[in-house]
Nucleic acid binder design. Structure first.
Length: 272
DNA sequence: AGATTCGCCTGAGAGC
DNA sequence: TGCTCTCAGGCGAATC
């Protein structure tokens, strides 16, 4: 389940291996994933040199020489990896980019929640990027700013942190971890969080994300880096997936409960 | 508007 | 072994 650290790791891998190379051929094995692929995408990107790779929230943007942009989202189970261009597609390989250096970039996505789209050179914005909130590493994200954002919200803290329109890039895992780190109970309403608590929460978000990026992300089920390497942050989870196991701080068993249909993991003793 | 729920997907794991 | 059931969850759409 790729969240910001996993997407950042993949973007870095792509940057290293794909920037400066030209897309010789784009092969689509189906007509779309979460959304239909643009009809003329292959024609538009073939022959284009990749000039830059960037990340916006959990989206990867592949910038092309003519100003066009390929937009990618890994959804729940999406994987991007390189192989020599003699690659034989396997199940759930939906897209292949053949580059001019004898490699092939494969987009595999079992659950098909992923997105692949194309922005024309003149197209300045994209529907999916329009409503995305601030990046967690943007200077905008300060305790005061978050306090103001949450001030009137009668919604659990965890749901607010997962709302991509406020902070973009956090998902279930890292929200659980950041709330543990800052000793805040996930079901607390946004409006109840004080400035001193926000001063713990914001650095906790930074700390957890930075550590996860340094570890190459967390490999659970589907996720791997572009070279096939596993991330290893999953070994450092303090709450996520640890129901019934002792809290690393106080040894109280970690509790699991459901919020918005998703599992929340937290320590009922030291998170308030 | 804010809050809540649903549905898209398949594979892994549990239970019989 | 093989079938059925449940769960995982990002995020847009729909609903209240």
């Amino acid at each position: 389940m790729p969240e910001l650290p996993e997407v950042e790791t993949v973007a870095r891998g792509l940057r290293k291996k794909a920037v400066g190379h030209t897309i010789e051929k784009l092969v689509l094995h189906r007509s779309g994933l979460r959304f239909a692929f643009p009809i003329h995408m292959a024609m538009a990107v073939e022959g284009q040199k990749i000039t830059k790779i960037s990340r916006r929230s959990k989206y990867i943007l592949i910038h092309l020489k003519d100003g066009g942009v390929i937009l990618l989202h890994l959804g729940m189970s999406g994987r991007l990896f390189f192989h020599k261009d003699d690659y034989t597609p396997v199940k759930h390989d939906h897209v292949q980019f053949y580059l001019d250096n004898g490699t092939c970039l494969i987009f595999n996505d079992a659950r098909r929640f992923g997105v692949l789209d194309y922005l024309e050179p003149k197209q300045k914005q994209h529907k999916l990027l329009d409503n995305i909130g601030t990046d967690p590493f943007d200077d905008t994200l300060t305790p005061q700013w978050l306090l103001e954002k949450f001030r009137k919200r009668q919604t659990p803290l965890k749901n607010l942190l997962m709302d991509q329109k406020i902070i973009a890039g956090l998902g279930n895992i890292y929200v659980c971890e950041a709330l543990f780190e800052s000793k805040l109970w996930p079901a607390r309403l946004g409006s109840s969080v004080t400035l001193p608590e926000m001063k713990k929460l914001v650095p906790a978000i930074h700390k957890v994300l930075k550590a996860a990026i340094e570890a190459g992300g967390s490999s659970l089920r589907d996720y791997v880096q572009v070279d096939g390497e596993m991330g290893f942050f999953q070994d450092k989870f303090k709450t996520y997936g640890r129901e019934g196991k002792p809290c690393p701080r106080c040894k109280t068993p970690i509790e699991r409960f459901v919020q918005q249909g998703r599992s929340t993991f937290a320590c009922p003793n030291c998170q308030k």
